[in-house]
Each structure stands twice: as C-alpha cells, then as structure tokens.
Design a protein around this nucleic acid. Structure first.
Length: 260
DNA sequence: ATGTCGTAACGTTTACGA
C-alpha cells in the first residue's frame, strides 16, 4: 500500500497540481496538510471521482488537515488531545486495513513557530509535547502505526541546504524542545532515513528568492513508523519533481510503501 | 524591490501567516 504525505498550501489553489500528481503517483492514501479550508468548502468531487473517500478537519483561512483514501477508513478522529482550548486544526487520525493487518494513521501539521522567541514558538513547543504524549500512548499498543505530515522541524544539519537554517533562534531547529527531532522521537523510525542517507534531500523550497532554482531546500516533511510498521516498510521516496510543476505547492509529497 | 504565495475581507488593496 502506498501512503503519502503532502502539504498542499491551499486546496482551492492546488486542485490541478494535486490531481495531476494523484494520477501519476497513484497513492492509496494521502495525508494532506494546510488545506486552508473549512470542511464544507473542501472540493471533494475531484477526489471522489478518482475513487478516494475524503475526511477533512479544516478551519477558516489557515491550517487544516485531511485524508484521501481509496480503502475505507475507520475510527476517524480529529484534533490532538491535551488542550481543549486549542482550536487550530492540525491533527487527524484514521485506521486503514490492508490484506494482512490494520494500520493507524496520524496526519499532522506541526506549528511553524516563528518568530523565536515568542508566543508562536511557545505554542509550537507545547504542541510538540502533546504530540509526544499522543505518540507514546499509541506506541504502547505495539501495533502498526504511521505518523506523517509537515513537522516544521529540520532533524539534522544535512537536512538543510544552508546549515544556518537550524541555528539557535530559528523555529525549524526546535531548540528548547528537550532534544526532540522526528528521528529522535523515541521508538519511531524516520522512514526516509531508513532507506536513504546523506545530504541534499529536501521536501520544502520557499517561494521567495528562487529557492527551488538554487537548490535551497529543507527536509521538514516526515513519515515516522512504529516498530510494527517499520518492519513492513519496503520503500520511501520524496517526489521532488513535483516542485517544478505548474502552480506548485512550496512542499512536495513524501511517499512510503508498506506491505500491509 | 520586505524579494512569493494563498486566503479573507465591504476588496481593483491590505493584512496576515507561512
């Protein structure tokens, strides 16, 4: 089963780019971030026409996550536990079942956190702590589990074209989060790094300053797997060519294949 | 020329978030 994560930066502006990619990559499941739409305004038809069921968790103007899936989804839940006063739409869960086993999916859009310091960075760190708690609770089940999305965290220096992107005072480095990085979330495997080593692999290039043209990217979109899911990983790739397409998102998809 | 996008709002432009 092919499962992808894609920060699309606005669903209404990305229908063409997204459907073009779906028709080429043919993923079974897609975890979307930054749909920037309320649930009622999400354009479901282009995806339902392609055989996907659509589950959204949106809000007006910003943020918002969703799942597109060809196999049926069960037990869909919305929102990251741990703060009833948090109304930002950044987390959705669902279970998909393959031929051999079920897989719990968590789609996430971790706060950007800039500027540092400030209330937005404080919110990011608090959200990461809630993520850690939720991830640990799910990991305790010892079942196949996948967390994927825009983490807004650069794990290592090799994951940025300019190492200063990870400098102290930059939210992407997520300093102050007690050593948290996607690769270091205890018990999880960074699916991309399980398959590919070395620098120069990015998932985001800023619209400004010709970042794509200059190769100035960062790796901030990640897929994390529980041990029971990591055992079933057969492929992981970043679809960087999508960034050169027409009217692209500033992020590109990351795709994993799991034998479930 | 604070450089690019997407979205919302009394909008042919500004503000905000990223």
């Amino acid at each position: 089963m092919k499962i992808a994560s894609f920060n699309i930066n606005g669903i209404k502006a990305r229908i063409g780019a997204l459907t073009d990619w779906l028709d080429t990559a043919e993923p079974d499941v897609v975890l979307l971030q930054e749909i920037k739409s309320v649930d009622e305004a999400f354009p479901r038809e282009p995806f339902e026409d392609r055989g996907y069921t659509v589950e959204t968790h949106g809000q007006k103007g910003f943020n918002g996550v969703a799942i597109l899936s060809k196999p049926p989804l069960e037990d869909v839940t919305r929102g990251l536990p741990g703060d009833d006063g948090d109304d930002q739409a950044r987390w959705i869960e669902a279970t998909v079942t393959g031929e051999h086993t079920a897989l719990r999916l968590c789609g996430l859009y971790l706060p950007n956190g800039n500027p540092v310091p400030g209330p937005k960075f404080d919110y990011k760190l608090a959200w990461m702590e809630r993520l850690r708690a939720r991830a640990e609770a799910l990991l305790h089940d010892e079942e196949p589990l996948l967390l994927a999305g825009d983490f807004n965290v650069i794990p290592q220096d090799e994951d940025a074209h300019r190492p200063e992107a990870r400098a102290e005072g930059r939210a992407g480095a997520a300093r102050g989060a007690r050593g948290f990085s996607p690769a270091a979330l205890p018990g999880f495997t960074d699916a991309f790094r399980a398959r590919t080593q070395g620098p120069g692999h990015y998932t985001f290039w800023d619209y400004q300053g010709g970042a794509w043209r200059r190769g100035d990217g960062i790796r901030i979109d990640h897929v994390l797997l529980s041990p029971q899911a990591a055992d079933r990983l057969t492929d992981c790739r970043i679809d960087s060519a999508v960034r050169a397409g027409e009217k692209p998102s500033d992020h590109v998809p990351i795709e994993v294949t799991v034998d479930i």
